[in-house]
Write a protein that binds this DNA or RNA. Structure first.
Length: 571
RNA sequence: CGGAGUGUAGCUCAGCCUGGUAGAGCACCGCUUUCGGGAGGCGGGGGUCGUAGGUUCGAAUCCUAUCACUCCGACCA
């Protein structure tokens, strides 16, 4: 491709509304343009990258025996009503009406559609298992679209759905998809990690997320330093302290703490170690009998909302009580709450249950109790794991300690079980002719997000440094002084033709621009290999080669550049 | 949705407080000079200052409403 016929819409300055590096570089490199919040146009060069990501996903899905289909993006409301998600899904579902006032939605995911298809097509156990996938545009009316392609409203997703006659069969496909995902992200050249995950609103029994590791990631992952344990922090278990609770050493006393409304202030003003304090968080309960529930977490720990919402006593999703509600129920404000004399059901974190001689609010404004001990001063309530793990916590598998890293979720595999097949009556006849409900799995990859994630992981101060599998072009061909030298023009035209014929995707910068401009553009857009030809080089029979990540250029005989590139790309 | 902020040329922004002829850099067009790391000179095109009202002799500037966008929180590929 000639740059003169393939305009590079590169920007020297960073658009003000782009926050993360991938968004900035995608805009600056002319890969995408914004239409509206969370909506982007893929420019020609950007589409090349997207298609390459798609190609790897498609090849590996096919290899795993999945069958590609293409379902409509617009879906009738009836199917969503049947699964119950028309009501559940909320405002994230873009709802539409046609000219007859019939209701539709723009698909954010396709469980209902595929389940409807399969229940019509599959009658016999002989037709199972099946695994259908598609690569298609989804729309989710995100509460807060941001970070460019990373959290767009419209995005390209590969979604696959498998149907089975037994949980064992589902497990086989689940494992196969897990392997396939690992192959896909490896081929794409990404540094990734599969982690145990919460099943969230889609439901189901088991799930793993695939994360590209990057500091800009929105998720926190807990990984063991001595085993392969890895989990999203939402799910990572905080194990109970090994040491038994120490015996009381202090008397409980009531202390005036008029200026300490937060744990931080308490620690600063009274010299109390933060591990000797307890936070009392009031949340809405799950039943009218107990409209408010108190969750107790050690002062230096953080409440895990996902874990808390799963407790039967707690409302799901988690809702914090307002100050007015708290005052009405307890008679004291949020800054002075504690377990002693608390007229609410309590649930203590495992770490809290192991504490002794600790400080907490006295449920009287401006007063705290210090030296509190369980059983002696207040009965130990129900104990549960309700906190986020922290760096250095023991790994739940008993091997090693946890480290926390950041990740961008690019893939997710679920065992759905019978959630949709039951609701939508997707059944088949087994060997005995009995009607059975199908067992389902589903498997997603955010294809457009993969593009952004790849940049987050592969860039430097000059721009993008694409992994080979995603690069829009393999080779940037840059002539120096071509517009002043007929001899050079002929030589480089021949080199361009030869390299293209040899199968390389070459971007030939035939602009009448200064070398610095061409170099800067090629590095910004991230072409992995650069070949420079000048008159000087022509005289010496050499071209200059530089890999996008190399520190220095090397001279290569003109006649050998083809083999040299081939060897470099084989690295 | 709650909180914070921003809308002025394709991009980055100044001007607004204190109302009086709409600006700079980059980009773009022409000429020129230069030619291995986003050069320089001369000339040029381009904005009803987000939109709609209001105050005023006069509004980018003050007031009101409205729309859009960004950031911080709960969601997800």
């Amino acid at each position: 491709m000639r740059v003169s016929q393939y305009p590079l819409a590169t920007l020297k300055e960073t658009p003000a509304d782009a926050e993360v590096i991938s968004h900035q570089l995608l805009l600056r490199g002319g890969y995408i343009r914004r239409l509206a919040s969370g909506l982007y146009t893929w420019m020609p060069i950007g589409l090349r990258v997207l298609r390459k990501a798609e190609a790897v996903v498609r090849a590996e899905m096919d290899r795993a025996g999945a069958l590609e289909v293409l379902m409509p993006a617009v879906q009738p409301a009836e199917l969503w009503q049947e699964s119950g998600r028309w009501e559940q899904y909320g405002p994230e579902l873009l709802r539409l009406k046609d000219r007859h006032q019939r209701e539709f939605c723009f698909g954010p995911t396709h469980e209902e559609i595929i389940t409807d298809l399969v229940r019509r097509e599959v009658r016999s156990y002989r037709q199972l298992p099946v695994n259908y996938y598609q690569i298609q545009t989804k729309f989710r009316d995100e509460v807060r679209p941001r970070f460019g392609l990373m959290r767009a409203r419209e995005f390209l997703m590969k979604d696959a759905y498998s149907f089975h006659g037994s949980p064992e069969s589902l497990h086989e496909t689940y494992e196969a998809m897990y392997e396939t995902y690992s192959r896909i992200f490896t081929r794409l050249g990404l540094n990734f990690r599969a982690v145990q995950a919460d099943t969230g609103s889609i439901g189901g029994s088991a799930s793993h997320e695939f994360h590209v590791l990057a500091n800009s990631g929105e998720d926190t992952l807990a990984v063991s330093d001595q085993s392969d344990y890895a989990a999203n922090i939402e799910l990572a278990e905080a194990v109970a302290p090994a040491a038994p609770r120490a015996a009381p050493a202090e008397e409980m006393r009531l202390v005036d703490t008029p200026d300490a409304r937060t744990i931080q202030e308490l620690v600063e003003q009274f010299g109390l170690p933060i591990e000797k304090t307890v936070k009392t968080l009031i949340v809405h309960g799950a039943s009218d009998d107990a409209p408010l529930v108190a969750l107790l977490v050690r002062g230096d720990h953080e409440l895990n909302a996902v874990k808390a919402a799963k407790l039967p006593e707690v409302a799901d999703p988690l809702v914090f009580a307002g100050e007015d509600e708290i005052r009405a129920a307890i008679g004291a404000g949020p800054g002075s709450l504690g377990p002693v004399n608390l007229p609410l059901p309590m649930i203590a974190d495992r770490a809290v249950a192991a504490m002794s001689d600790f400080g907490a609010g006295a449920n009287i404004d401006g007063k705290h109790h210090f030296g509190i001990n369980w059983e002696r001063d207040v009965a130990l309530p129900q104990v549960a794991d309700v906190r986020n793990v922290v760096e250095g916590d023991p790994s739940p598998d008993g091997r090693g300690r946890l480290r926390l890293v950041r990740g961008i979720e690019v893939g997710h595999v679920f065992k759905l079980g019978t959630k949709y097949s039951q609701a939508m009556k997707a059944t088949y006849l087994d060997e005995q002719g009995r009607e059975q409900v199908m067992v389902m799995g589903c498997y997603g990859i955010g294809v457009s997000r993969v593009v952004a994630a790849a940049i987050e992981q592969n860039h430097d101060e000059r721009g993008i440094a694409w992994p080979a599998a995603l690069a829009p072009f393999d080779v940037a061909l840059v002539p120096i002084g071509m517009h002043r030298s007929q001899r050079l023009r002929e030589a480089i035209e021949k080199l361009y033709a030869d390299l293209t014929a040899a199968g390389f995707a070459v971007l030939f910068d035939d602009r009448d621009a200064r070398p610095g401009v061409m170099f800067a553009d090629m590095e910004l857009i991230g072409i992995p290999h650069r070949v420079v030809l000048s008159e000087r080089g022509l005289d010496a029979g050499e071209v200059e080669y530089k890999g996008r990540r190399d520190d220095a250029a090397t001279q290569v005989p003109l006649a050998e550049i083809d083999a040299f590139l081939r060897q470099r790309m084989g690295d």
